[in-house]
Lab assay of single mutants.
Amino acid sequence: MQFKLIINGKTLKGEITIEAVDAAEAEKFFKQYANDNGIDGEWTYDDATKTFTVTE
């Protein structure tokens, strides 16, 4: 399945899409990606669109 991350950071904005087995695997990848890029904010997930959003 495809999952999307929308980044609304103070210094980094954009979107990335990955293939993952389930939402838990996608969330783990996205949170590591955000951590690696210094993004720390509020997370939301929309199951209907398979979209995670992080907002700083």
Score class of each variant (00 low, 15 high):
7 I>H: 06
39 I>W: 06
24 A>H: 15
33 Y>N: 03
15 E>Y: 02
56 E>Y: 05
30 F>G: 11
10 K>E: 09
36 D>G: 13
44 T>C: 01
37 N>R: 10
3 F>H: 02
55 T>I: 14
15 E>R: 02
23 A>Q: 14
11 T>V: 09
47 D>V: 14
46 D>K: 08
43 W>N: 00
8 N>Q: 10
46 D>G: 11
9 G>E: 02
14 G>W: 07
45 Y>T: 09
48 A>T: 07
50 K>I: 10
34 A>V: 05
32 Q>S: 04
1 M>T: 08
28 K>A: 09
29 F>T: 13
26 A>M: 01
26 A>C: 01
2 Q>L: 10
9 G>A: 09
27 E>V: 06
5 L>V: 11
23 A>W: 06
10 K>W: 14
36 D>P: 01
2 Q>R: 14
10 K>H: 06
20 A>I: 09
13 K>T: 05
55 T>K: 12
22 D>R: 08
22 D>G: 12
52 F>C: 01
19 E>M: 15
31 K>M: 15
56 E>P: 01
22 D>I: 13
38 G>I: 03
6 I>G: 06
14 G>Q: 05
21 V>Q: 02
29 F>S: 10
18 I>E: 13
21 V>G: 04
16 I>L: 15
20 A>E: 04
45 Y>A: 10
12 L>P: 01
45 Y>F: 14
48 A>W: 15
27 E>R: 09
16 I>M: 10
44 T>M: 03
37 N>I: 15
14 G>K: 05
15 E>C: 03
55 T>V: 10
19 E>P: 12
42 E>W: 08
50 K>M: 03
11 T>A: 10
44 T>N: 10
41 G>Y: 01
40 D>S: 06
45 Y>P: 00
25 E>M: 05
15 E>N: 02
18 I>V: 11
2 Q>S: 12
37 N>H: 12
26 A>L: 00
3 F>P: 00
53 T>N: 15
18 I>Q: 08
54 V>S: 04
47 D>Q: 08
38 G>K: 06
21 V>D: 08
34 A>F: 01
14 G>M: 08
53 T>V: 04
13 K>S: 13
56 E>W: 14
13 K>P: 07
54 V>Y: 01
34 A>K: 01
22 D>K: 12
41 G>N: 00
33 Y>R: 02
55 T>G: 04
18 I>P: 00
46 D>I: 10
51 T>W: 12
17 T>Y: 04
39 I>G: 01
45 Y>Q: 05
40 D>W: 05
23 A>E: 08
5 L>C: 02
18 I>T: 08
31 K>Y: 07
25 E>I: 03
47 D>I: 13
51 T>P: 00
3 F>L: 12
14 G>R: 06
24 A>F: 04
8 N>V: 04
10 K>S: 13
50 K>R: 14
48 A>F: 14
47 D>K: 10
2 Q>A: 10
24 A>T: 08
31 K>L: 10
41 G>F: 01
26 A>Q: 00
15 E>H: 03
54 V>N: 07
54 V>M: 09
41 G>R: 01
51 T>K: 06
1 M>P: 04
32 Q>I: 13
49 T>R: 12
1 M>L: 05
27 E>K: 14
5 L>A: 02
25 E>A: 14
56 E>G: 03
47 D>C: 05
25 E>Q: 14
39 I>N: 03
25 E>D: 11
30 F>W: 01
51 T>E: 11
8 N>T: 02
17 T>N: 13
38 G>T: 06
10 K>M: 08
4 K>R: 02
48 A>E: 14
54 V>K: 00
42 E>I: 05
8 N>L: 04
14 G>I: 15
29 F>D: 07
36 D>C: 03
44 T>I: 09
21 V>M: 04
51 T>M: 08
23 A>F: 04
43 W>F: 12
15 E>P: 03
15 E>S: 03
25 E>Y: 11
39 I>C: 02
45 Y>R: 12
14 G>H: 08
23 A>L: 06
36 D>V: 05
45 Y>C: 01
29 F>E: 05
29 F>I: 12
29 F>P: 02
21 V>F: 08
38 G>N: 13
36 D>M: 08
25 E>S: 15
8 N>A: 08
52 F>R: 00
1 M>N: 09
44 T>F: 14
6 I>C: 03
35 N>L: 13
31 K>N: 13
33 Y>G: 01
17 T>K: 13
5 L>G: 07
37 N>P: 01
45 Y>V: 07
4 K>E: 05
38 G>S: 14
52 F>S: 02
33 Y>A: 05
17 T>F: 06
26 A>S: 12
15 E>T: 05
50 K>V: 11
52 F>D: 00
40 D>N: 03
35 N>P: 03
12 L>M: 09
37 N>K: 09
31 K>H: 13
43 W>M: 11
19 E>G: 05
